[in-house]
Simulated assay, not measured.
Amino acid sequence: MPQHVWTTVIRPARAAPTGRVVVLAHSGAGPNALLPMVRWLPDDIEAVGVTLPGRERRFAEDAERTLDDPEGTVAAVAGELRTRSAVPAVLFGHSMGAAFAVALALTAPDLCRALVLSAHPDGGSRAELAGQWDEDDLMAILERGGGTPPEVLADEYLRAHLLTVLRCDLTLGYRLATRHAHRTLPVPLTVLGGRDDALTETAELTRWSRRAGAGLRERVFPGGHFYLLDEANQKAVADETAGALRLVTSG
């Protein structure tokens, strides 16, 4: 069996798998952060999470290693995904994870039937495009985004670690988003967002239309940057994701 470093099954299919959702999380987080939504996926869809260094099971690894070769990082994830069973897959990227998902879809189109891009505009978010961030900037991003447990921010070690990972991820998102900013996407897009997102305005999400060569669906939910984790939205977001996969496999 191949060793999987970058990817892991975070929600096995409960029946014979007919499809896969590859989950790419927001800056500073790993895919398990999105489990409240992922758990609502249909029984025959497997969820595979991409874990970058510096978080979850890779907490002790240096997050900055992704910045040495961003394209190599994307290629490493693609290589692992190719070792998994061949079932139709959709990439789900939230915030910075959307920039990674787009880069992955362009690097390895054989691995992706559709893209679901959440809370992230084409070309990069305003936070990413700043290009550099001191501690106050990073804390302001966390405050506007919400969702960070206060006990993490109160712990000096955990806060410092989180800010380091956040800075690395914002840099990675910036480099990937700007590097691929003008390439048309060959798969259908589903673009989702929160109506009250303080980091990405819903009007910014419409910019994906200029790159949607294979169709575009948009939906805005009540809530902020982490609208998809609100209990009222979790199943609907999972349904949109599963629907994106069903749409490209039903024919």
Rank of each mutant, 00 (worst) to 15 (best):
P149F: 14
V152R: 01
V102T: 12
A212M: 12
W133N: 07
G215I: 13
S125N: 11
E156R: 15
P149E: 10
R84A: 09
D122H: 13
D136P: 00
W40V: 02
S250D: 15
A47C: 09
P17H: 03
S85R: 15
A60Q: 13
G54E: 06
P17Q: 02
P2T: 14
D43I: 01
A105L: 09
R211K: 15
V22A: 10
T200R: 04
L41K: 10
Y227K: 03
L106S: 05
M96E: 06
T164V: 05
L35H: 12
L111G: 07
G28P: 00
P222H: 11
L24Q: 05
P17T: 02
L205G: 08
L35P: 05
G224E: 11
R14C: 09
Q3F: 08
R179C: 02
A236K: 05
S95W: 05
V87N: 01
G215R: 10
L189D: 05
D137P: 09
P121Q: 12
E204A: 15
D134E: 07
E240D: 15
A236L: 13
I10E: 07
A130P: 00
E80G: 06
G215T: 13
G54A: 06
G146T: 04
A33R: 14
V74I: 11
A238S: 11
R20G: 05
F226V: 06
A154T: 02
A78N: 06
D196Y: 02
S27G: 15
A198E: 13
A60E: 14
L117H: 08
E135P: 01
E135C: 00
A60N: 08
T83P: 02
G213N: 11
D43W: 00
L115F: 12
E80M: 01
I141M: 10
A212E: 13
S125P: 09
L81S: 02
D62I: 02
N233I: 07
T7W: 07
A160Y: 01
L185R: 02
A198P: 06
G19E: 03
L162P: 00
T200V: 15
P42S: 14
A127C: 03
L117T: 11
A99L: 04
L162S: 03
G97A: 07
G28R: 08
P31V: 02
R113T: 09
G224R: 13
I45V: 15
M1R: 10
E56Q: 12
A108G: 10
T83K: 02
G213H: 11
I45P: 09
T18G: 14
T73L: 12
L176N: 07
G131P: 04
N32S: 14
A13M: 10
V87A: 01
V77R: 03
E201R: 15
L104N: 08
D136E: 14
S95R: 05
L245Y: 13
R246S: 14
G97H: 04
L176Q: 09
L129C: 10
T83C: 05
T171E: 14
V48L: 12
P31M: 04
A98D: 08
P36I: 14
L158C: 07
H161D: 08
H182E: 07
H182N: 11
A75H: 01
L91N: 01
A238C: 11
N233A: 04
L117F: 12
T164C: 08
G72A: 00
Y227C: 04
G131F: 05
G193V: 04
V22T: 13
D69F: 06
V90L: 08
